[in-house]
Design a protein around this nucleic acid. Structure first.
Length: 273
DNA sequence: CGGTGGACCTGCTGGC
DNA sequence: TGCCAGCAGGTCCACC
């Protein structure tokens, strides 16, 4: 599910419901996620008040009182949903955060590529999960020219470059294809062969694609649901991703799929050069 | 050093 | 109907 827009939509959806609430206890049914969940998790979190929700890269950050932050990464298949406690647990529901208000915040993740851990709030930037991360694409400091500077001395194909979190965070496999389509740049083009004006176009496309997806409530694929478990966010407005063989919305040519870094890349060979 | 490919997991879909 | 291959939104690490 989650690239930057989906995590941001989740943050915005959950924050008004969680702010000011308190974590009473945490039930851990399965601690084998991408990294093992600490046996201390419930002890560390219990009794703490939720101050605010933030996002860094694709991590949802729950700031608690006492300078502690709960970090949640959804991996490929993670979901975080508010549920009434009487609702029966679904399969792969690995963690349940029981709230003082009498609701559950439940973490479900069939593939277990997700992450749940705590970090001292003021030390977050130094934590090994965050310290190497690059620019936030929707914040000041990000631009096409910033990408151009960071591309100096590199030779990677531009799609791989955009998906490198050391450069810029939040762009996953779907939005990398979508942004390059909007910018009219071929995904295999080496970053050494992109001139300044095209970097401007790429920067603008990245911002545009991510902002549009957030505005549409987390676009992406059709099983995305917001933090309340509503399935009303059925929304597909992708131009190329998952559309192999279908006509390009701009020129009608057949969308192609290739394999890049072991993953599917979609593009229009006539619009993207 | 930069860049790629495999590994980590489960579930779903489509072809035979 | 059943089986199997291929694919899936992320990230890390070994290896060239």
């Amino acid at each position: 599910m989650p690239e930057l827009p989906e995590v941001e939509v989740l943050r915005r959806t959950l924050e008004p419901h969680l702010e000011g609430d308190r974590i009473e206890s945490v039930l851990v049914r399965e601690r084998r996620l991408r990294e093992p969940v600490s046996p201390q998790l419930s002890r560390r979190l219990s009794g703490r008040r939720i101050e605010r929700l933030r996002r860094r890269s694709k991590y949802l950050l729950v700031d608690l009182d006492g300078e502690l932050t709960l970090a949640v990464h959804l991996g490929m298949s993670g979901r975080l949903t508010l549920r009434p406690p009487e609702m029966t647990a679904e399969n792969h529901e690995h963690l349940v955060f029981r709230l003082a208000s009498g609701r559950d915040l439940r973490f479900r993740d069939p593939r277990r590529f997700g992450l749940v851990f705590t970090v001292a709030t003021h030390r977050l930037a130094e934590d090994r999960h965050f310290r190497h991360l690059g620019a936030e694409p929707l914040e000041g400091g990000f631009s096409g020219q910033m990408l151009r500077r960071r591309a100096r001395g590199r030779r990677a194909p531009v799609k791989s470059f955009l998906m490198d979190a050391r450069i810029v965070v939040g762009i996953g496999n779907i939005y990398a294809s979508e942004a390059l389509y909007r910018a009219g740049v071929h995904p295999l083009r080496s970053v050494t062969r992109i001139a300044a004006p095209r970097w401007t176009a790429i920067g603008a496309s990245v911002v545009g694609v991510l902002s549009d997806a957030i505005a549409q409530g987390g676009t992406t694929l059709n099983d995305f649901s917001d933090g309340l478990g509503e399935s009303g966010y059925f929304q597909v407005s992708l131009d190329v991703y998952g559309r192999e063989g279908l006509p390009c919305p701009r020129c009608g040519a057949s969308i192609r799929r290739i394999r890049q870094l072991g993953r599917s890349t979609y593009y229009c060979a006539s619009c993207q050069r």
